[in-house]
Amino acid sequence: MKYDVRQLELLSNEKIADGIFDMRLKCTDSDLKIECGQFAHVYVPGKTLRRPISVCDASGGTLRLVYQVKGEGTQIMSQMKPGADVDMLYPLGHGFNIERGKRYCLIGGGIGVPPMLYTAKQCENPLVITGFRNKDFVILQEDFKAAGAELVLCTDDGTAGEKGFVTDLLKQRINEVDEVCACGPVPMLKAIARVCAEADKPCQISLEERMGCGVGACLVCAVKVKKNGEEIMQHVCKNGPVFNAEEVVF
């Protein structure tokens, strides 16, 4: 049996920026075979659908999910109290493929930043570029530094770090790395994919879509990809969330 539903004890659930929460859950070491870029499908009491949240970190018996309150479901999640059991289906999906000996540039935009932390921990000396709308949304900077990443921060309005978009910084530094991994809003991912294609660097991107079952049965979280010259529909939950950027039909 590959999948299971687990009840994890909630250790803490704190607001770390405007609308952003950091949930930590207790899990045993045997539960920690998680690939970077995978996600947990979280049961929300009173809701029909689970909420897919990418794994921000998994170490020392703690699973960490950093999420943004976007609607009713995540609102309920943000009110869960320490000591509660959280019903989770994880780890799910196909994560980032990290190879030894390569230097990676990891890019996160907004709420796309959290999965890049666990990814950074799987890489040797990665270059991490994090982008946010403004200083109020900046998260996880100390965590990336502690993980040994070379960290660059930028905001759209320049209120923290450099002023500009992650793609501006990527263009300046792309020759220093072998491969790019990114997670964030689709326009950002599209721009990153273009920069990588022009520089002839491989690029993996983590996508998001409204999701149902989380395991590839209900086929709702569709994404169009090109395989062997043919356009087909794949699914974020099972084939992704991480896809080869070259194959995604935006």
């Binding site: 409204r210 979280c221 569709a222 169009k224």
Partner: peptide, 17 residues
Amino acid sequence: DGNPPPRIAETPSGILN
């Protein structure tokens, strides 16, 4: 190949697909 996404929305005590 089916419809373009989004293909699902939550509703009170249910879903639309």
